[in-house]
């Protein structure tokens, strides 16, 4: 296989990696808020259950979680899972990352002084207005560096999708390497991941700069 051919094959795997990356962020970033609110709920049962799920999701390997999500429907409910592979990846990744994002959001929210809530309350803001107009913009600025870290980790975590046989960039790389009996594909894959993360860092840095207006 020529170098160009390898590049072409690995880039086709890259598309799948980007799909996982993209859909995981689309679902986990908002889902993280719901989990964070559950965690911070005054209802002890809700916050207890949420805390338990967060600890499970953060305390077990993502690879195992992917297997549970993919094979679970069959082994628990005898449902056919032939076309469930890609959705299972997204569900597994999104839930896992939502747990991490939730803890980041929670730390961001608790970093906002209580005086901000009191000032908003006195000025007549409703709870929803207070959250969206006063608290959230400040929280986003606080949590952005931590979110960036998670996003970069996600780029690399996408390779775990192969544990349930979803063929993304890293598994294609391994396949080419084994057929061609060379390590060159790994060097190419490393470069791809690196460039991907350079892009991610660049975008996040731009965002951080834009939010650094005050």
């Amino acid at each position: 296989m020529s170098f160009f051919n390898m590049l072409e094959q690995i880039s086709s795997g890259m598309l799948h990696t980007i799909l996982i990356f993209f859909f995981t962020l689309v679902f986990s970033l908002p889902l993280g808020w719901i989990v964070a609110f559950g965690r911070m709920s005054k209802n002890k049962i809700i916050s207890g259950i949420t805390a338990f799920f967060i600890s499970i999701l953060r305390g077990t390997p993502l690879m195992l979680q992917l297997m549970v999500v993919f094979y679970g429907p069959y082994f628990l409910f005898q449902l056919p899972i032939g076309n469930w592979r890609f959705p299972a990846i997204i569900v597994g990744f999104s839930i896992n990352y939502a747990a991490y994002f939730a803890e980041i959001y929670r730390s961001g929210i608790s970093a906002i002084p209580v005086g901000q809530y009191e000032a908003a309350h006195i000025l007549g803001y409703t709870k929803v207005q207070t959250f969206f107009k006063i608290i959230l913009p400040q929280v986003i600025r606080i949590i952005l560096p931590a979110v960036t870290n998670e996003v970069i980790t996600l780029v690399k975590d996408t390779s775990l999708a192969f544990s349930i046989s979803y063929i993304e960039m890293f598994s294609i790389t391994k396949q080419i390497a084994s057929t061609q009996t060379t390590l060159m594909p790994f060097a190419i894959a490393a470069a791809f991941y690196y460039i991907f993360n350079l892009l991610v860092s660049f975008v996040m840095r731009r965002l951080e700069k834009r939010l650094n207006y005050y």
Partner: peptide
């Protein structure tokens, strides 16, 4: 369908 060899039984038994 390329599979992770360690998961071959799960793949087969679950019908994927």
């Amino acid at each position: 369908q390329p599979i992770d060899w360690a998961n071959k039984d799960n793949e087969l038994n679950s019908g994927s």
